[in-house]
Amino acid sequence: MELAHLRRASTARPPSLTSPMTDPALRLGTDIVDVRSVEASIQRFGRRYLERVYTDAEIAYCSSGANGGADRFAARFAAKEATLKVLRPTDWRPEWRHIEVVRQDGGWCEIQLRGPAATLAKEQRIQIVSCSLAHEQSYATAVVLGSYRAPTTDSLSSPDHA
């Protein structure tokens, strides 16, 4: 009985997923970064590199990690690139600092968009809903999930989308 319920649930599609090929409700972005490459950038360019790519809060948190926090910085760079893959800028791209990884007290992270990055997301009707970062000695990776809402008549008239 439980299996039947799961089967029904798996075949039932929410209204926003009625045409996934042309109008996907979700966008996924991922990226992987070599931690040694980030470490080398910090050694070569120092604060100039950090301040060009990361926000003050990201620098404060990552720098408190072991060995200068290169693994943490690498994970954040991966998250920024993964976010760009969700936002899909066609040519011009937001600055890296306009995409911030905000660490929550519980240890998980969220993406906060600012300035032109936030504007791009709004224009694309994308909301970043979740992200996940991971790193070990050599590599860091991130996955970012965005929710896309198509400008359909239904979405404009439905109370759920008010």
């Binding site: 490459s37 950038s41 070569r44 100039r48 590199y49 060009r52 040519d91």
Partner: peptide
Amino acid sequence: TSHATVNVMLALEDEFEIEFPESLLLR
């Protein structure tokens, strides 16, 4: 890669003593 692009950008700024404006942060 995207990350190597940052290094290239910063190294070009050093080499040519310039700073890339945001308008040129294009792929």
